[in-house]
Simulated assay, not measured.
Amino acid sequence: MTALPELSDRLAIADVVAGLAHAQDDQDWVAFRRLFAERVTLDLSTHYHGRPPATVTADDLVELARTTLAGFDCTHHAATDLLVRQAGDEATCRAHMVAYHHVPAEPGVVDHCTMRGRWDLKLRKLDGRWLIEHWTVVRTAPWEGSPDVYALAAARVAPRT
């Protein structure tokens, strides 16, 4: 009779993935933080500027996400086609990802960027909750628009001197 607990875990993992997309778009940093273990490996090596993987605290990850997304007028992260593999209290989840980002820009400047790729997540069940321990963002297609919108967004929230 293990089918029901396995199904329950798969649904909980799907809720984590959906929660990750919604928390970013809603800029709900409390909800975002609840999705992660205390320490998280973040791998953006194929996404933006080829940053190598780094292990950070969940609070530092929240701050990175907050400062990255704060300057955008809107974002839309759509995660689909979840492929979940579970073994006990450990799981992986691969989700197709389309992420749209928009920032106001001067006429003639590209004001949006769409990334197509996937999220590769490693999760662990701790105290009855599935938490992300490893988050890889893999860009699998060329940018649509311009990744320069990240710099435009950052400039909107940079401290003025």
Rank of each mutant, 00 (worst) to 15 (best):
H102P: 00
A155L: 06
R118V: 02
I132Y: 05
V137Q: 11
A65K: 00
R66S: 09
Y48H: 12
G88K: 07
L69S: 02
A58S: 15
A154G: 12
G19T: 09
A3D: 13
V149P: 00
A18Y: 01
W29Q: 09
A37P: 06
T140L: 10
Q27G: 03
E6P: 02
L82R: 08
L131M: 08
R51A: 14
G19Q: 08
A79W: 03
D28V: 04
E63V: 06
P142W: 01
R160E: 11
L126N: 09
H96C: 10
G128H: 06
E106D: 15
G128P: 04
V149K: 03
T136Q: 15
R66Y: 03
S8D: 13
R139W: 01
R33Y: 09
G145Y: 02
L64W: 09
P159I: 04
L11P: 01
D73H: 14
P142I: 02
V157Q: 08
D120W: 05
V109S: 05
D43Y: 07
V17D: 08
R10K: 12
L4M: 12
L42S: 07
D81T: 15
D28H: 02
S45C: 05
E63G: 03
G145S: 01
K125P: 00
L4P: 01
A65Q: 12
P53N: 10
T55G: 07
T92A: 12
T68A: 15
V62I: 02
T136C: 12
F36A: 09
E63I: 03
V17F: 06
T57N: 05
L69P: 00
R156H: 02
H112V: 02
G19F: 08
A87Q: 15
T114K: 02
A105Q: 06
E133Q: 14
T140H: 00
R85E: 14
D9A: 13
L35M: 08
L69Q: 05
A70M: 05
H49R: 15
D81W: 06
A12D: 13
Q86C: 04
G50N: 13
A95N: 04
Q27M: 11
T140V: 03
A78Y: 07
T68G: 08
H49M: 10
E90K: 11
A91E: 08
V138N: 11
D26W: 10
C74A: 14
L152V: 03
T57I: 06
A155R: 11
L121K: 06
D9N: 14
A79F: 10
R33F: 01
S45Y: 04
